[in-house]
Design a protein around this nucleic acid. Structure first.
Length: 273
DNA sequence: ATTATTTGACCCTC
DNA sequence: GAGGGTCAAATAAT
């Protein structure tokens, strides 16, 4: 029921998003005109509006996903009518070591010769010797977990001595705004909200990513490789000729871009439109 | 003084 | 009960 409302709201915002895109194009053309009387900040303002739309879409999509998850949880473990039992459930939920997230949020791995510096601020909160592993596994959470409620965590584990190789596993994506390295582009771990063929890229507020810039071309290429890797496919000539147009940006803000890959999955519909 | 890391204990899932 | 993820007090670094 609530989901229907969220879906409706998302549809409306998407329409607004389309109008804002049209407006942006018009304002951009005006700005290019040397006799333009358009205030220079108008284009920036439209971009800000677009960003608000996309951010709202992300929030709504997350809410929708969580609502769906709650419903499926209720189906698996029906809540007891007994009030004492419900109380017990609450305390268990607040106790440490609740692993629900781990099972529901998709993981995203990356192997690097050094422990990955991905531009985000991480706080180490534990380490553990893992069975059959040569090296310790290190646990990190986002530094802004408590101030901004950012739920991103990662695990880093050395998997090879020579040459040194570290495997970083990300869980959840960053909702915080603080990047350590403003020039860095982050290919965020795939979120269940985005689907397996999509990738969310975050930049700092000082970086703008525009379709007509070479930087954007490399962003697209890297995103494409990540997605292909996810599907264990090679980035070969055949593939490129079959899918010359993709991946494609389906919506974005200057510093938060979502790229949807080629039609590998016909059912794929990241926002349920 | 404040912030980050270490580390043993705690707790959950299987 | 084993294995793995998280907490939080103690400790180290800034």
């Amino acid at each position: 029921m609530e989901n229907q409302l969220i879906k409706k709201a998302m549809e409306e915002i998407k329409r607004g998003c389309e109008f804002a895109h049209e407006l942006l194009e018009i304002v951009h053309k005006w700005n290019c005109d040397k006799w333009s009387t358009t205030p220079p900040f108008a284009e920036d303002l439209v971009r800000k509006i677009l960003r608000s739309f996309t951010d709202t879409l992300m929030v709504l999509n997350t809410t929708k996903y969580e609502a769906e998850e709650e419903i499926s949880d209720m189906k698996v473990t029906p809540k007891s009518e007994d009030s004492e039992e419900s109380c017990k459930n609450l305390t268990i939920k607040n106790r440490r070591g609740t692993y629900k997230r781990k099972r529901t949020i998709q993981a995203w791995e990356k192997d690097t010769p050094t422990p990955a510096d991905d531009g985000y601020a991480w706080r180490k909160y534990g380490q553990k010797m893992i069975l059959n592993a040569k090296y310790l596994r290190n646990y990190y959470r986002c530094t802004h977990k408590y101030e901004q409620g950012c739920q991103a965590i990662k695990q880093v584990q050395r998997i090879q001595e020579k040459p040194p190789l570290y495997r970083t596993t990300y869980y959840g994506h960053h909702t915080c705004k603080n990047l350590l390295n403003p020039a860095e582009m982050i290919l965020e771990p795939s979120s269940p909200n985005l689907g397996p063929n999509s990738i969310l890229i975050s930049f700092s507020d000082t970086v703008q990513c525009r379709k007509d810039q070479p930087f954007f071309t490399s962003v697209k290429r890297e995103a494409k490789e990540e997605i292909l890797d996810h599907h264990h496919m090679a980035l070969d000539q055949t593939f490129s000729s079959n899918y010359p147009q993709c991946p494609e940006v389906i919506f974005g803000s200057p510093n938060r871009v979502m790229i949807e890959s080629f039609d590998l999955d016909h059912e794929f519909d990241p926002f349920g439109f």
